[in-house]
């Protein structure tokens, strides 16, 4: 190994770092133009709409169930639905942190939560926030879960891992959601096969005394979501959405989670209500469903109206603004 070889390696590495920075910057400018697609485009669209009076956070069961137009009519505030399919609490928490870091004039954050998401850590799915690394301590903390993750995130191009193609597509061929309010309802009704499909067999671990404790990390994330918004004077309403269960009973762990959620949200200063098929019998009709997990357009209208009613009850001062 000669000095020449070592010098050549140094030049190679220096050029690699420069290229990494340049490529990351180029992809960053693409990101700034993206408004659609689950590869960070939806995040960008939500950030653009951060000054809406009401921001809705959650998974596909927020995106497809909550109609911002209904919230606007019922509560007199502009609204945007920032739900994203396949995502869970970590996504909502990181999006909220970015919204708050960039400054928001929102009055209310509505968070749809799935009880399962408090027992399973799906933070890895929220890597769509990697391009925003460095903008918010909360985002950085979730992304850099271990020392290697923190190291990898020093690469600017790595932050666009698995996102680059989606961004190119979002910029070249923007989806219909690019200009909408984020609400994308399912159209059509649940078929007999879907209605009869086996329910999710998931069951979290149970303690000896019969409790189902949330994952500490998820519990903290939920508390932080509520507490950070409250610290900036933004009200938080957390709700559980409905599922079609047919003749099946709600599992015990879900019943336990319904109650525990209320305690966690209240302790951080938020309001909570289950707007599900247990609390609202009208949400048990199969005609309102697209599949066992998702309402259809008609069901979304019913749920959105119920949400307005619950929010007005929880925050009477919001109504009429």
């Amino acid at each position: 190994m000669t000095t020449r070889s070592l010098l050549r390696s140094a030049v190679f590495l220096a050029a690699l770092i420069a290229l990494d920075q340049g490529l990351g910057a180029g992809l960053g400018s693409l990101l700034a133009r993206a408004r659609s697609g689950q590869g960070a485009g939806l995040v960008q669209r939500a950030l653009q709409a951060r000054d809406a009076g009401i921001l809705v956070f959650g998974s596909s069961r927020a995106q497809r169930h909550v109609d911002p137009a209904a919230l606007e009519r019922g509560l007199g505030l502009s609204a945007h639905n920032a739900g994203c399919p396949g995502q869970a609490l970590a996504y909502a928490r990181m999006l909220e942190a970015l919204v708050l870091a960039r400054g928001s004039r929102a009055r209310l954050f509505v968070l749809q939560i799935d009880p399962k998401h408090l027992f399973v850590d799906r933070s890895a799915r929220a890597s769509v926030f990697a391009p925003f690394y460095g903008e918010s301590a909360a985002v950085d903390q979730i992304l850099a879960a271990d020392r290697f993750a923190a190291l990898k995130l020093q690469s600017r191009s790595y932050r666009f891992n698995s996102l680059a193609l989606g961004l190119l597509r979002a910029v070249a061929l923007p989806g219909a959601e690019a200009d909408g309010n984020g609400f994308t309802p399912h159209r059509g009704r649940m078929g007999r096969a879907a209605a009869g499909a086996a329910p999710d067999a998931f069951a979290p671990p149970r303690t000896a005394d019969g409790r189902y404790p949330f994952l500490p990390r998820m519990r903290q994330m939920l508390r932080d979501f509520v507490a950070d918004a409250r610290a900036r004077g933004i009200d938080v309403f957390v709700f559980l959405g409905p599922r079609y269960r047919g003749a099946a009973r709600t599992p015990n762990w879900e019943l336990a989670a319904r109650a525990e959620l209320g305690r966690v949200v209240a302790s951080a200063g938020g309001a909570y209500a289950p707007v599900d098929e247990i609390a609202q019998p009208e949400l048990r009709q199969p005609a309102l469903y697209f599949n066992r997990s998702h309402l259809n357009e008609q069901g979304a209208a019913v749920l959105s109206a119920l949400l307005v009613r619950e929010i007005r009850t929880a925050f009477p001062q919001l109504a009429g603004n």
Partner: peptide, 10 residues
């Protein structure tokens, strides 16, 4: 290298 970084499954 950048194909691995950008297109690979992390």
């Amino acid at each position: 290298i950048f194909a691995v970084v950008l297109l690979g499954v992390d």
